[in-house]
Every structure is written in structure tokens, then in C-alpha cells.
Nucleic acid binder design. Structure first.
Length: 582
RNA sequence: GCGCCCGUAGCUCAGCUGGAUAGAGCGUCGGACUUCGAAUCCGCAGGUCGCAGGUUCGAAUCCUGCCGGGCGUACCA
């Protein structure tokens, strides 16, 4: 459909030029940018004539008429004047047939593009602490990271997803200390709970404990010192508890379809970066203060100054990130690196990227912080102290139970077969759609009640449309009426809504490309909902399997099949499970 | 104070990078299952697009200033 568009832009430009010539006027300079008319009846492309009114000394409507009389019609469609607009209508049957066949033939590859072909993109997301289970904030992070990874891969990039696990530090020692003090050798297995939840309980326990006895704070610091000194007992405990947590996190990733190509552990990299900072002093880009601490001047980027090494020579957060990104670049030289990290850390990444530039890494300009907003509850921020943090596993379990209830209520147990698996897929679909429909940069409110809903603008709605189309195609097969692709007579698709659906299918590849350029799964979510909603209205009013004539039935089945292709591919990019039956 | 982000229907969110009457979902109310699966569809109601200027033929969209909110601005990560 792009060819048509480009051709019409040229044609309209030429017509305007000729018109100007004939009137002895300077050809108009304004760029010709087509828009989309608000309704399909008006056409498929709209050229507003307002910008040319001044140079022509004519009303936009008159210009539109003059332009149209020069354009006439061609095999690329026909133009007509609609007030101040030149509207173009494509040859529908022709376009429909090329769109549908491209979609159905490409099948799982439909929507892919080569925009980022050959580009190596590393993307970091999740990055949990190993002292507690994943919570709702991680779920947004994971959903975004996973989806953006898939979108970039669909744009042709070679993507490597990594998870930097924060497995060391004072917060880790806190849960360890509480465990030592209170657990009496208990284990997750013995208690029959997930390892991350088990350890998380001790973290909470520590917080209570520290409130009653301020002295424990010092004991935690002491433990950290021992850990850094590789004290055997402390390291052994650390290893055991970390493994518990990692196992628990892995189970949650598994349940949510989150994958990584590599795991990085902060415990292995936290001392790196220091050498880089020291090199920076030699090169004069950092300065050392009398107490031995090292600073970077950030006034070039309108910030203050920032410490890079403490007086005692130990690293801070930025220093570590300097080290890890350099190490990663060595492991796997990338053309671009994306950090999926909450907006709280905007400042941190501005500093990090600037510092890497100062250190002379030319790829510093290829680092991006995909900043996303906070997830709040209807009555405010999640607070671990007040116990309002929404646990990831609990939420998923709740969604799953609700889905089971739905399946039973609709009496679909038999049709569905594996109720548990289907319910889980619905739960994940609801969750991911809910988290991804919002523009990443915006804070969002997580309304538990709303998130538990499966009706309306939701993931299950999209899954349901897939299931319905599937069901139709299955029946067509059973009745032996499944059409050959080549046999589809697209001129039978002559209603406005059918044309609208064809246009949506044709637009999908561009949506993927745009979503890749903007790192915005929300763009895909919005598009899929549009498509599903339009189709839903359509098949309600237009019988498909039971269409009055075979050629009409076949054409509609072809359309439905193409829509299924798009929905399925799109859902995959959002990490929403596809269901043939639900 | 300074920096970044955000203000669109009662609530949660869209709005194709400046174009035709600002759209969905939820919620309220009212309709549609002997008809391809009602996790569906259709209709009603609901808006000074935070406010004020500016740019433009044309602004929810771009610029400036206010007002309101969030997050930062640590020798925490």
C-alpha cells in the first residue's frame, strides 16, 4: 500500500506544479504530506490544500478541484475533491488481494521488517535483588523488556537480552542475618514455599527486628565486610540463600514467559569499573579530592558533580555500571544497548552515559535508558513497610483462579481440555496487556479489580478473538469448505468495514516498525485492540461460515484468516499467549 | 531552589509526530443468545484536552510562562 501512497504523493506534487506553471506562479514550496481521512468512505489518503491557498491566491477547495481535474484516475486508484481536501481512493479489490496474500503467505513472518537488519542490540531488564520475590514493579519491567526485545528482533535486529542480578550488598546481608538468627536451619522445601518468598520473609523479619534493636544494623554491615573478605561461612550461607531466590525468580520468569540470553551477577562485577575511573584521573577527565575520593564534573550536562570512588577507594553504583557495560561490550560488541529501568533512575543514566563518553567510548552515544513510570496503587505508592507491595506470584495466582472460575462459569471445561494451562494463559494475557497498554514513560495506576477483569479492552479480549476465528477456520476445515488462497475473490469484500479491516492488516508492518523505533509495545497493543474490535463488530453483522454464497464465504474466510495471522503475530510481540481455544 | 517526566469523560488509558465532528474500556442506564462460542455486539449519557499567551490557513499535538502532581538532585543500589 506504500507504493500507492508514494505514487500519489508524486502525482499530487506534479499536479500542483503544473497548475502553478500554467498560472505563472512560483511552484509551491510546502511539503506534501498526506493524512488519513477520518472515515473510509472519504478515501484512503487525504491531501489538505490549505498550505497552497496563499501562493495560489485561491481557496483550498478550488485548488483541490483543479488538482483533481489534472489527476483523474489511474490503476493506483482515483482522486476526488472533498472540500479543501484531495482525497484518494485506492482500487480496493486489487489492494485487498495483494494485502491478504502477502499476509497469509508470510504467515508467522508477516509484520517483520529489515529496519534494524545486521544491528546488534543488547537489552537489560528485570535486574532483581536476591533478597525477596518479584513484585508488580518487576512485572512491568519484565513485560516491557521482553516485549521490546521481541519487537526489535521483529525489526531484524540481533537481540541479546541480559539480566543483571543484584546479588550482593547490605540488603542481601539483612535477610541472611535474620535467617541466621531466627531460622534454625529451616529451608524452603521443608516449609513448602518458593525460595524467593522464603528469603523475602526473612528480609521482612529483619526490618522488624532492626526497628526493635538498632544494633542489628551494625551486625549487617559486619556481615557485608565478612562477605567481601570471602569469609567461608558467610559466603556459604549467601550462596545457599541466593540459590533459593534465583530458583524462585526463575519459576516466575518461566510462568510469565520472560527469557534472557545471559545472566550477569553483580557479585562478579562490582569491583570492575574502578580501574576505568583511575584511568580517567590520568586522562584528566576526573579529579581526586584531598580525602582521596574521585569526582566527575557534570556541569557540561547541566548537573552538579558526582562521586565515582569513595575516599576509601570503594566503588559506588555508577562505578559498577561503568565496569559492567564495558565488560559486556567486550563479551558481545553491540551497536546499541538498552537499559529498561524505572524513571527513578533517569539521573543515574544521564551520568553513566556522560561518564562513558568522557572515558572515550565511542559507543556511549548508542546507550539508551528505556525509562518507564512507576506502578502505583489506587491509594498511592506501593510501600513495603506497609505491606502494600503486590507480589508477582500472588497476583498471577489470583488471575489464574479467576480465569478458572470464568471457564467453569461458561461451561467450557470440556472444550478447553487443559483447564489449568488455559487459565494460566488467560491470566498472563490479562497481566501483560494491562501493563503494556500504557505508554512506558507514564506512571500508571494498577487497579487490582480492573486488572482482574477479562472483558473490554483487555488481553483476554484479544485472545478471545483469536479463539473465535480459529473456531471458524476449524469448522470450515471440517466441512471441507476451507478456501484455497488463490481462489479468494477479493472483490466480494465490498463493504466499508471489510475495507477497513484490509487497511488495518496492511498497516500492521508499519506499526511494528514504529513500535521498534519508539520502544513502544503500547503502540502494538492499541493497534491490536483496534483490529480485534473492528473484526468483532464485523463478524457479528456479517456471517462468515454461513455467508449466503460460497464465493462470499471464501472471501470472508480469507479475510478472517489474515486477521488471525496479524493478531497472533502481534500477541507474540507482546508476550501474550495465543490460544486456539479458550 | 535546580533538573527530568506527567496533567485529555466520574475512573483507567488512546490520539497515527500540525489537519475534517477529540476516541476506547470500565462504571450508570437501555437493548441483542432456537442464528459461525454472549470472555461478544449495539445504543444513550458523559469534554473550557490544567490555565494563559504565542507560532500557524489550522494546535490535544510545537514554543513560552504560570498552576497542580510525580521522580530525582546521597560517599544507597
Amino acid at each position: 500500500m506504500n507504493e500507492y501512497r508514494n505514487r500519489w504523493i508524486e502525482d499530487v506534487a506534479r499536479a500542483l506544479r503544473l497548475e502553478a506553471e500554467e498560472r505563472g506562479i512560483e511552484p509551491p514550496e510546502a511539503e506534501i504530506v498526506p493524512a488519513t481521512p477520518p472515515k473510509t468512505e472519504l478515501g484512503d489518503l487525504a491531501f489538505p490544500m490549505f498550505p497552497f491557498a496563499k501562493t495560489f491566491g485561491m481557496s483550498p477547495a478550488l485548488i483541490a478541484e483543479a488538482v483533481v481535474s489534472r489527476l483523474g484516475r489511474s490503476d493506483a486508484g482515483e482522486a476526488h475533491a472533498a472540500g479543501p481536501y484531495v482525497n484518494v481512493r485506492y482500487p480496493r479489490a486489487q489492494v485487498a488481494s495483494s494485502v491478504l496474500s502477502a499476509c497469509i503467505c508470510s504467515d508467522r513472518a508477516y509484520g517483520r521488517n529489515e529496519r534494524l537488519a545486521g544491528e546488534r542490540v543488547m537489552i537489560e531488564y528485570s535486574s532483581p535483588n536476591t533478597n525477596k520475590p518479584l513484585h508488580l514493579g518487576h512485572l512491568r519491567n519484565d513485560a516491557l523488556g521482553e516485549s521490546v526485545s521481541r519487537i526489535l528482533a521483529a525489526c531484524g535486529a540481533q537481540v541479546r537480552s541480559v539480566n543483571l542480578i543484584n546479588d550482593r550488598g547490605i540488603h542481601i546481608c539483612k535477610s541472611m542475618l535474620a535467617y541466621q538468627e531466627f531460622a534454625d536451619g529451616d529451608t524452603p522445601e521443608r516449609r513448602g514455599v518458593k525460595g524467593d518468598a522464603f528469603v523475602g520473609d526473612y528480609y521482612v523479619r529483619y526490618e522488624q527486628w532492626a526497628r526493635e534493636d538498632p544494633g542489628v544494623e551494625e551486625r549487617a554491615r559486619e556481615m557485608l565486610r565478612k562477605w567481601e573478605a570471602a569469609d567461608e561461612e558467610v559466603v556459604a550461607l549467601w550462596r545457599t540463600m541466593n540459590d533459593w531466590v534465583l530458583e524462585g525468580h526463575a519459576a516466575t520468569y518461566e510462568a510469565t514467559g520472560i527469557r534472557f540470553d545471559a545472566l550477569y551477577f553483580e557479585s562478579e562485577t562490582y569491583t570492575s569499573g574502578k580501574a576505568e575511573v583511575l584511568r580517567g584521573i590520568e586522562e584528566g577527565v576526573f579529579t581526586r579530592q584531598a580525602d582521596g575520593s574521585v569526582w566527575v564534573d557534570l556541569s557540561p550536562i547541566n548537573l552538579d558533580r558526582k562521586i565515582l570512588l569513595r575516599g576509601d577507594g570503594t566503588s559506588v553504583y555508577v562505578t559498577q555500571d561503568i565496569g559492567t557495560v564495558i565488560a559486556r561490550y567486550r563479551d558481545w560488541p553491540f551497536d546499541r544497548m538498552i537499559y529498561v529501568v524505572a524513571s527513578e533512575q533517569n539521573y543515574h543514566f544521564r551520568v553513566l552515559f556522560h561518564v562513558l563518553g568522557l572515558l572515550g567510548y565511542e559507543w556511549a552515544g548508542q546507550l539508551h535508558h528505556l525509562s518507564y513510570g512507576m506502578v502505583n496503587l489506587p491509594d498511592g505508592r506501593m510501600k513495603s513497610r506497609e505491606g502494600t507491595v503486590v507480589d508477582a506470584d500472588d497476583l498471577i495466582a489470583e488471575l489464574r483462579e479467576l480465569a478458572v472460575t470464568e471457564i467453569r462459569a461458561k461451561d467450557r471445561e470440556e472444550a478447553v481440555g487443559d483447564v489449568a494451562a488455559t487459565a494460566h494463559a488467560v491470566a498472563i494475557g490479562a497481566l501483560h496487556y494491562y501493563l503494556l497498554q500504557v505508554t512506558p514513560a507514564k506512571d500508571m495506576i494498577f487497579n487490582p479489580k480492573e486488572s482482574l477483569s477479562f472483558t473490554g479492552n483487555t488481553g483476554p479480549y484479544l485472545q478471545y478473538m483469536c479463539a473465535r476465528i480459529n473456531s471458524m477456520l476449524r469448522k470450515a476445515d471440517e466441512q471441507g469448505v476451507a478456501p484455497q488462497e488463490s481462489a479468494v475473490q477479493t472483490d466480494r469484500l465490498d463493504t466499508e468495514v471489510e475495507w477497513e479491516l484490509v487497511r488495518l492488516i496492511a498497516r500492521y508492518p508499519q506499526v511494528v516498525e514504529q513500535a521498534g523505533a519508539d520502544y513502544s509495545p503500547a503502540a502494538i497493543a492499541g493497534f491490536l485492540y483496534d483490529l480485534a474490535k473492528t473484526f468483532s463488530g464485523y463478524y457479528h453483522d456479517h456471517p462468515i461460515l454461513t455467508a449466503p454464497e460460497p464465493s462470499l464465504r471464501d472471501a470472508r474466510l480469507g479475510l478472517a484468516r489474515a486477521i488471525l495471522v496479524v493478531l497472533r503475530n502481534g500477541l507474540e510481540l507482546l508476550n501474550i499467549p495465543y490460544l486456539a481455544i479458550m
